[in-house]
Design a binder for these strands. Structure first.
Lengths: 147, 147
DNA sequence: CTTCATGCAAAACATTTGCAGCTGG
DNA sequence: CCAGCTGCAAATGTTTTGCATGAAG
């Protein structure tokens, strides 16, 4: 388990290092990102931030999340159908398992992707920069529900 | 290499089997899908279909492509930023390598995903239905161009 | 002939943008 | 102070939808 505090600190440090400003809104957003295990949507982050910072706007959440993504402090999981989801705890590519019923997203322990990229480079000539691996299925609790 | 003719036939067969109608527009769209190696967007399919069938509408292309997806005769690659891409030749999950500059998509030869799903089932309890594996990078010709 | 498909335009929806005013450093 | 951030509303771009007309079976 990563210490939430240190992740928040590292994000703040990154902001300062690039001379972006540390505003109360940004602090609130990045706290939600780090404390969420659920891979929240922007809308969800917005709700949580508003509860103790009521004047925050949705646009600011979008802007902050995009900024953190560009600084590699957040992993964006884009979905064409429905909203994007964000992971502030493991801001690097890793596999996800997604429930197609309840939209829950979990991080499984899986290895064996790194060696594929060297194989790929040889075969395709591409310079590989990042990847995305999602498994879609039905989670245990939805399996019961819909049986 | 799959025979284009047989893929078109199998799509038509599937349509008839589910009592969907075989219209000239649908035939034209599915021919483009099968003859494209480029993983076309809906817009791209639309252009090509219009050239020999000028009255076709974009909405019809969307509807047809969605129908074929539901019949498992086309693989949809959704992208949140930009348009979705379609593969009528290999309508089942398989890895893709995507150029982030020119948006080219190629199918690499890669194996070793099937065994991951059994591992996943054990670890997460999910019933895995499908997956998606994309590698993002820069293709050989864009590597030259931007050097 | 009946039902389903087409084509047009309008709607939907998440995300981005423009801009006036505010504020962190 | 002043560049950069915020919040609002309007714009964007892709995909979907409603509905009248047309064509497949």
């Amino acid at each position: 388990m990563i210490e939430p505090k240190s992740r928040v600190e590292s994000m703040l440090k990154k902001l300062r290092a690039h001379q972006f400003r540390v505003t109360p809104q940004r602090i609130a957003i990045l706290k939600v990102l780090v404390c969420s295990i659920e891979h929240p949507t922007v809308e969800r982050i917005y709700e949580q931030v508003k509860s103790d910072f009521p004047t925050t706007s949705l646009a600011t959440v979008y802007k902050t999340v995009t900024l953190l993504k560009e600084l590699n402090e957040v992993l964006e999981l884009g979905f064409p159908e429905g909203s994007n989801r964000y992971d502030g705890n493991k801001p690097y590519p890793h596999p996800h398992v997604i429930c197609i019923k309840c939209k829950k997203i979990v991080d499984p322990d899986l290895s064996g992707l790194a060696d594929m990229t060297t194989e790929l480079k040889k075969e395709t000539g591409f310079k590989i920069i990042h990847h995305r691996l999602d498994f879609f299925g039905i989670c245990p609790s939805c399996q019961k529900k819909y049986k």
